[in-house]
Design a binder for these strands. Structure first.
Length: 420
RNA sequence: GGAGAGGUGGGUGAGUGGCUGAAACCAGCGGUUUGCUAAACCGCCGUAUGACGCAAGUUGUACCGAGGGUUCGAAUCCCUCUCUCUCCGCCA
């Protein structure tokens, strides 16, 4: 949601920034509606004021005067109705526009229509060399009889998978390792949130109204969360926080459900793109002056996991056209997958500034006024894709998987995953 | 799922048609008093938005869970929805 005052004062800047996102200028349409709205508002307020004054003198009048007054007030009421009907139409038009425009890009963000313009910020680790041809994760998993796509297809359909045996445990170990690190080393508070949310929450973080097609909805009109960002960020929905309650750093390991509506034919092999996957999410709620450095901090929390796992990755600053709806600046972390011979996204860390806070009406008190909080979210990391990265990077020629050192205690001191 | 009771400002809690944007108390902020702390006393103390003003501020309107309705006038009456609580049933 955008700040109308900002658009009033910076109309051309607003349009320029939209242009960076390859969107048409909107300020004129918005400000025209705004003027109309304020005009109607003034009129209806004057009439309301008049009505108030009239009716307050009612009891002092004689019967004849009372009758007259009743008629008069009734007429005013009709007028108010007409004005306010028009007002509510304009107001909802205005809201529709404001709530469907994505966040404006930060100055640092490279301009470009798609991922081709993303900027590689840093590359960590070498591309690993193998003495044999590394296999993709799905072959490794199926050979171990620990990934079962076939049966998942029968039971649930495409884009689902069974993890079995040591790979099921590996997934749990990865998540536990991430949660332990984020909570003890980086001060995040662990949360187990609801996995179904209402419209208001999905609206708050920006999934609604535009992206309902990407979500699953239950027959109770709940939405299955596409990421824990939704329930974690909405923990401050409709609240006013004290300054000393900030920053809040929250983490949760949840399943994520995505319809992948627009992804037909993409990544159909393997578990890169599933309807259900698990992710450890990081969310920060900060004061407005702190969000920029919080994004860097969050990025470091996420990459430190990959550092510990000793896999190669690169950090990418997304271009204006590749960023998500709510973000003003986004770093993606891409991990090297030997089986695919390329880097694949494993995390996305975004600063949304006050964009989501406006939608959620989430504020904090300062000395002179209530300000909108800033919200950030990032994967810390996608657990399923981390599992893929481990399978492919730690595979041995015989098809077994070496357990990364940091995960050994979580795996019951097992050092290797193999069929026998 | 059945039955009942409720949702009032940061909290507790008055308020059943006009004088209530809302008593009182607590918390909070500012001040007086006080050797310090405490106490006492005085003042301030909801949100959103419009207009005027350089500003401090002044002023309009709306908001007592949400949305409709009745009325000259609604926190108060009516309807719908929603949430919370209690009891019963069912259940991991």
């Amino acid at each position: 949601m955008h700040d109308l005052n900002f658009i009033r004062d910076n109309a051309s800047l607003f349009d320029d920034l939209l242009k960076k996102r390859f969107l048409d200028p909107q300020s004129k349409k918005i400000l025209d509606l705004d003027i109309k709205k304020r005009d109607l508002l003034t009129k209806s307020q004057e009439m309301r004021s008049e009505r108030k004054n009239l009716s307050s003198s009612f009891s002092k009048l004689d019967d004849n005067e009372k009758l007259k007054l009743q008629e008069k007030v009734q007429q005013i009421k009709l007028d108010i109705d007409t004005f306010e009907k028009e007002l509510s139409i304009i107001d909802s038009q205005l809201k529709d526009i404001l709530s469907s425009i994505p966040n404006l890009p930060h100055d640092d963000v490279p301009i470009g229509e798609d991922e081709g313009s993303n900027k590689i910020v840093k590359t960590i680790g070498e591309i690993p060399k193998f003495d044999f041809t590394p296999k993709p994760h799905y072959e490794l998993g199926e050979n171990l009889d620990m990934l079962d796509f076939e049966q998942a297809g029968k039971v649930s359909g495409t884009r689902f998978v069974y993890l079995k045996n040591q790979l099921a445990r590996l997934e749990r170990s990865i998540a536990n390792f991430m949660l332990d690190k984020h909570t003890t080393e980086f001060g995040y508070t662990e949360i187990i949130p609801p996995n179904m949310v209402r419209d208001a929450a999905a609206y708050g973080t920006g999934q609604l109204p535009k992206f309902s097609d990407d979500l699953f909805q239950t027959n109770t009109d709940h939405w299955l969360i596409p990421t824990a960002e939704v329930p974690l960020t909405n923990l401050v929905l409709e609240t006013i926080l004290q300054e000393d309650q900030l920053p809040q750093r929250l983490t949760a390991w949840t399943p994520c459900y995505r319809s992948e509506a627009g992804a037909a034919g993409r990544d159909t092999r393997g578990m890169i793109r599933q309807h259900q996957f698990s992710k450890v999410e990081l969310v920060s709620i900060t004061k407005e002056e702190d969000s920029e450095k919080e994004l860097e901090r969050m990025l470091n929390c996420a990459t430190s996991i990959l550092d510990d796992l000793k896999v190669s990755y690169q950090v990418v600053l997304l271009s204006s056209g590749d960023m998500g709806f709510s973000a003003e600046k986004t770093y993606d972390i891409e991990v090297w997958l030997p089986g695919e011979n390329k880097y694949r996204e494993i995390s996305s860390c975004s600063n949304c500034r006050s964009f989501q806070a406006r939608r959620m009406n989430a504020r904090y008190k300062t000395n002179d006024q209530n300000k909108f909080v800033h919200t950030l979210n990032g994967s810390g990391l996608a657990v399923g894709r981390t599992l893929i990265a481990i399978l492919e990077n730690y595979q041995n020629e015989d098809g077994s998987i070496t357990v990364p050192d940091v995960l050994i205690p979580y795996m019951g001191n097992k050092k290797k995953i193999s069929k026998f």
